Simulated assay, not measured.
Amino acid sequence: MIDVLFSAGGARWPAYAEALPAAFAAKGLKVRLHRDHDRPEAVDYLVHAPNGSVEDFSPFVNAKAVLNLWAGVEKLVGNPTLTQPLTRMVDAGLQEGMVEWVTGHVLRHHLGMDRWITDQRPLWEPVIPPLARNRRVTVLGLGALGAACAQALAALNFRVTGWSRRPKEVPGVACLSGADGLEAALVQAEICVLLLPQTPATEALLNADTLALMPRGAFLLNPGRGPLVDDDALLAALDSGRIAHATLDVFRVEPLPADHPFWAHPRVTVTPHIASETRPETASEVIAENIRRGEAGEPFLYLVDRNAGY
C-alpha cells in the first residue's frame, strides 16, 4: 500500500479527493490518500502546493518525491528542508487553458477590439482589419506552456518568434536564445507574451532598457510571473506610448493592492490570476503517472532542476 499525503490546502481537497483515487485506480495503484498524517516517516509521496499545510519537509524521511500541483516552483526550490525529488505540474488542462487565454488576448489586441467594445457610438468609417500574417508576436519562454502558445499563434498565421535562455526548437516558430537573441526577439515584438519561470535570472527581465527595444505601440501580455516585469518601468513605457497596452494576469503582490497604479491606468487590463489553473482531473492523471513511475523505479516526469530553478 502506498501512502500519499495531500498537502495542497483544504480548499482543493474536495475536488482532488474524488479525482486522485480515480486516477490511482486507472493506473492500478493501491493508495491510501491522507489529508493529515501523524507518522510523516510513513509517507511515500506528498501532493503539494506552496500554500498547503507543509513547510518543513524534513520529517518525511522516506518520501520518494514531492509532487507539486503548480507549474511554478519558485516558492519551493529554495526550501532547505525539501531534499526529496521535486516535480512541477505540466498537464493538458493547464496547457489548454493558457493557450486559450493567450490566444484570446493576442487576438483582442491584434484586432483592436477594445475600441469597438468601449465606444458604443462608432463612426461608420471603412476599416480594413489587419491580418495575422502581418503581425509579429514574440513569446518569451518556450517551456511546455510557452511552446504550446507559440504554436497555437503560429497556426493562426501570426509571425511568431520564441525566446528562451537555452536553445530550443519549436516547429513553426523562429527560436532565439541568449542575450543577443533576447534583443532580436524584442525589437520585433509588436505583441509580447511573457511565459518564463520566475528565477533570479528572469527577475525584472522586462525593464526600462528591454522595454525600450520593443516597437513603439507594442502590446504586452503577462500570464507568467509578476516579478518578470519592472512595474515602474512598465508604467513609464505606458505613459510614453512605447507600450500601447498591458494585459496583466500576475503581479509581484497578489491580490494586487487596491492602491496600485495598474488599477487606474487607462492602458492596463488587470485579470486576477485566471490565465490558467490546474484542473483536478488532468492534474491527478499526471500525479498518478509519477507515482507509478516512482514505484517502478522509472524517472519522474517534469523533475525540477534545482540549479536552474524550474
Rank of each mutant, 00 (worst) to 15 (best):
P40Q: 04
H37T: 02
H109F: 15
A150Q: 09
E285S: 12
C192M: 03
D91R: 01
L176Y: 03
D180L: 05
V127I: 13
R292P: 02
G9L: 05
G217F: 01
L33S: 02
L228V: 13
P50F: 12
L140D: 05
A150F: 08
L140G: 05
P223L: 09
H48G: 02
P59I: 06
V270N: 09
V170P: 09
A204G: 04
Q151P: 10
R35P: 04
V160F: 05
P40W: 06
H109Q: 11
N51H: 10
E18G: 06
A179Q: 11
Q198N: 10
S284M: 06
A236E: 03
L213Q: 12
A258V: 11
D3K: 07
P122A: 08
P215R: 01
C149E: 08
P40G: 10
F262Y: 15
E183G: 11
L220F: 09
E298D: 10
D36E: 14
L221G: 10
F158L: 00
G146H: 04
L111C: 09
R279N: 12
L213M: 07
I191N: 10
L195P: 00
A71S: 09
R39V: 02
L107M: 14
F24V: 05
E298H: 06
E203I: 07
L94Y: 14
D209G: 12
D38R: 00
V193F: 06
K30N: 15
L156Q: 13
G181P: 00
G309K: 08
I274N: 04
T118G: 11
L131I: 04
I291V: 12
I287V: 12
L29A: 15
R267T: 10
E298Y: 03
L205S: 03
D249F: 12
P129C: 01
N157S: 14
